[in-house]
Amino acid sequence: MASQDRFHEFCEKILALDTAVIFFALVDHIGDIVAMTYRETPFVDEKEAMQYAIQMTIAAILLAHFENRLGRIQYTVTYHDDIARVTLPIVVGNQKFFVLLLLDSGSDVVSVMKNKISPFVMGSKGIF
């Protein structure tokens, strides 16, 4: 199976983990979208998704500066009125990716991340 197919399948599996997940993107270390998926209708268009990917990658890189003192970032959450944005870094060997998610703001984001998304992502490192 080609990498692109594996990554798209990975995205679809993440989307299926919880109905609160409405958008998912896998982004490489420079902010390019490797694969993405969304529930029903696109919440963001392709241009907005690309902008979101770059912005969140830059933010994650800036926050990583403090990892030597604070420890590895598990994930970051930004709450908006209608949505929660989550960034989860994935490091496998010398490769770094970022998981970007948009979740329904009415959901228990911490529970979804801790009990579903993070364990699945960490258990799926073999695809990278």
Rank of each mutant, 00 (worst) to 15 (best):
M1H: 08
M1L: 07
A2T: 15
S3K: 14
S3I: 13
D5I: 13
H8L: 07
E9W: 06
L15R: 07
L15H: 01
A16C: 07
A16M: 02
L17S: 08
T19K: 14
T19W: 13
V21K: 00
I22Y: 05
F23P: 00
F24A: 03
L26D: 15
V27T: 10
V34P: 01
V34D: 06
A35D: 07
M36Q: 11
M36K: 09
Y38K: 13
Y38C: 08
E40H: 14
P42A: 15
E46V: 08
K47C: 05
M50E: 15
Q51L: 07
Q51W: 10
Q55G: 13
M56Q: 11
T57C: 06
I58V: 09
A59E: 12
L63Y: 10
A64Q: 09
H65G: 07
F66R: 12
E67I: 07
N68G: 14
N68H: 13
R69F: 11
L70K: 12
G71S: 06
I73F: 07
Y75R: 05
T76E: 11
T78M: 15
D82F: 05
A84T: 12
V86H: 01
L88G: 04
L88P: 00
P89Q: 13
I90N: 04
I90D: 04
I90V: 15
V91P: 02
K96C: 12
K96Q: 14
F97Q: 14
F97P: 02
V99C: 09
L100H: 08
S105H: 11
S107E: 00
S111Y: 09
S111E: 08
M113C: 02
V121D: 00
M122F: 04
S124M: 05
K125H: 04
I127V: 10
